[in-house]
Amino acid sequence: MRPDLAAIVHWVPRGARVLDLGCGDGSLLRSLWQAREAPGYGVEIDDDSVLACVANDVNVLQVDLESGLSLFADGSFDCVILSETLQTIHRTEFLMREMLRVGREGIVSFPNFGHWSARLQVVLGRMPVSRTLPYEWYETPNVHHCTITDFEDLCRRLGFRIRERLVLHEGKPVTLLPNLLGSIAVYRCTGE
């Protein structure tokens, strides 16, 4: 399992109602169900992923996140997850607000653009390509990269409170200089 997903599974309370935005093939929802008895729904736009979700027997809703979460009532979830999805979204602020409209708390993970290898590649005149940023610039689904500092700025601006943060590199927690040495960041946040 992807290390950020392991952290997410750990953070979701037993039996919580979960909404996974950009749920891929539904494997996080499946393991949440098995590990935490957390009943959930996934939102996914990609046809193949949606089909994989149906085959995985998880609830999947094929709607475009860019158009918001109008299917979901206010406060209808305990936990809304954006695992490595936020960087692929055009309407970042809008979706962040939607996340905490429908959920009591949000869990967000993203590849940290501030990691030293990304910085080095930019300094050397190249767009970064790494294990956590595996795409060439011309084929990447990512549209909005950010660093750990950037993300925390946005949370502050939106009035979100960061409850927990886990920064990882190669699956291990990073505590020293996280914005330089961490390649993935995972946050748990709530409204004020």
Binding site: R17, C53, N59, V60, L61, V63, L71, F72
Partner: peptide, 21 residues
Amino acid sequence: SREIVRALLDNRRIVSYLEID
């Protein structure tokens, strides 16, 4: 169809929804 899905979600029913292009 989305209206049906929304109503089912409001009732916490098990539901999957496909919107096929």
